[in-house]
Design a protein around this nucleic acid. Structure first.
Lengths: 135, 135
DNA sequence: CGGCATCCCGCTAGATACTG
DNA sequence: CAGTATCTAGCGGGATGCCG
């Protein structure tokens, strides 16, 4: 019992060293991914983004855009015309991310029904009404 | 059919039309992914999870576990022994998700430096000190 | 057109304490 | 060992208003 402790396999998933958290932090915002998706088709203007993403506010659009720009995921191009025109475009790095994101989307679509049913079953089973077994 | 005017004024589209949000909601929690990763190696006990995920609280571990179980992503097996023993394991669906997640992780690892540099450059450029060009 | 500032609220998650 | 309950802070993000 001197040197051999019982914890054999417990590999620490340290948050600091965990790239999973890295990417999640990049994507965790409510609107980040939708912006990436909306901008994936090519350069897009501020107002176009605003209109294509239902429910987003100017504020959140700006903030999220700034963050994505800061992370080098989108470029911001200002055209100094009289009606201001600003175009946003994905960087190559963001395009790679977008491809990966699409795999996630595919997963979601494939298993959407399964998840919904799981939820329903779980909720049913945990009803306060006491429908634990069956009726 | 005549009075189909159910005022579903909810402009939010319920995430039904947006699979991106679907998967993000599933993964958005601060600890969800790390739990999935930690449990990916095989059945794992509550305390093992708690120790392998640095910084997680009992509360959040339980809550996140419950949500993952509810979504059908993990199974919870209670062994009615005298010291209680509960094992958690990924469902097949979650294993698929985990694979996809690993692609995300790969992306993060590949571009971690790029992102860090982008951030540094952005922060430098937007310093209140006015170091816009160069020194 | 594009964007920033302010106020405000709800949700997430941390700390702490108790239980079967 | 494996949870549950409460209380609270912090932050994301919605609403609104003003500016280049």
């Amino acid at each position: 019992m001197s040197q051999r402790n019982t914890r054999v396999t417990v590999q620490v998933v340290n948050a600091d060293a965990c790239p999973v958290r890295e990417v999640l932090d990049r994507v965790s915002g409510k609107w980040s991914v939708q912006i990436l998706v909306a901008a994936a088709h090519g350069p897009i203007r501020f107002t176009e983004l605003e209109r294509s993403i239902e429910g987003i506010s100017r504020r959140m659009l700006t903030l999220t855009l700034r963050n994505l720009e800061r992370d080098g995921l989108i470029t911001r191009t200002v055209h100094p015309t009289v009606p201001p025109k600003v175009e946003y475009e994905l960087t190559p790095v963001a395009r790679e991310l977008h491809e990966t994101l699409q795999r996630l989307t595919n997963w979601a679509e494939r298993n959407r029904v399964y998840i919904a049913e799981s939820r329903a079953a779980y909720d049913e089973e945990h009803r306060p009404d006491g429908a634990g077994a069956d009726a």
